[in-house]
Amino acid sequence: MAEYLFEQFLIGISTGAIYAIVAIGYNLVFGVMNVLNLSHGAVMMVGSFGVLLLFYLGIDNFWLAVAFGIALALVTGLLVERIAVRPLKGNWWNIKVATLGAAMFLENFVTRLTDGRPMPYPRPFKPVYYTIVGDFEVSNVQLFLIACSLGLMVAMMLFLRHTTPGKAIRVVAQNPDLAQCVGVNVQQTMVLGFALSAALAGCAGILNAVTFGSTYPFVGQFLGLKGLVILIVAGIGNVRGCLIVALVLGVLESFSVVAGGSQYRDLVAYSALVLTLLVRPHGLFGEEGRTGREI
């Protein structure tokens, strides 16, 4: 039992870390453009299928495939921005609907190409199991995935905090007019935010597919909704809050599976969301009057 719990804990941490990357992706776009990009999940899916596409084309190199998957996600994200976001001129409600349309398009397009069944996923390297203490075992793939996700998060935070483009994103998120006054190219920064968000989506999609050993065209719906839950529970615009909430939710979900079975997994997430909205309408780490627009 103990090693089972430990295993569930690790699974919780690694899914939580992936959720966090998804939520940060939403945050980036929400921050710089003040819109909710509901195609985020579909872009993750595209990233995960990009890897498979390269294998299908006969190039048998995992890392090259990963780079290709991320690039494909990035291009897809930028296309969505051009087609379903920019022409709508900031009308958040319409953008929500249009990006959802884009997601539906992508999901059905990929289903059409692949006939919709879950596809087995390659692994970065052969799993080796290490025994920690007694019966506790952990595989190098698991550790690698957790390290990747957490590393990505930390890198993202450092980027936003310390680099000039990162600062530009934060400035635009806090006040786009003022950003122009201090010399930030707002349009370019918005595209940068969108691009980063899409690349992160690609990473999340691939990490998730490697974790579960498979991917399917509608995987983004499940992941995208979870990211959204975390975004709201943490409070829009809070990167650190996202990380904390995501990890807690991942572990909580894992343990709810232990306690009651897999059908309780989502119930936990959505109940947490409803509860948060009732008790703290602006999220656990959010503040009143700070509705988005800030990273």
């Binding site: 909710l36 958040w92 959204l228 709201i232 989502d266 009732l278 509705t291």
Partner: peptide, 24 residues
């Protein structure tokens, strides 16, 4: 309690919660 964007998300979450209750 909520309006606009947050109301949209709240109603969405409520719906998903109901689905999960029916599922279980």
């Amino acid at each position: 309690r909520l309006s606009g964007f947050y109301l949209a998300i709240g109603t969405f979450a409520f719906g998903e919660m109901m689905i999960n209750i029916w599922l279980t």
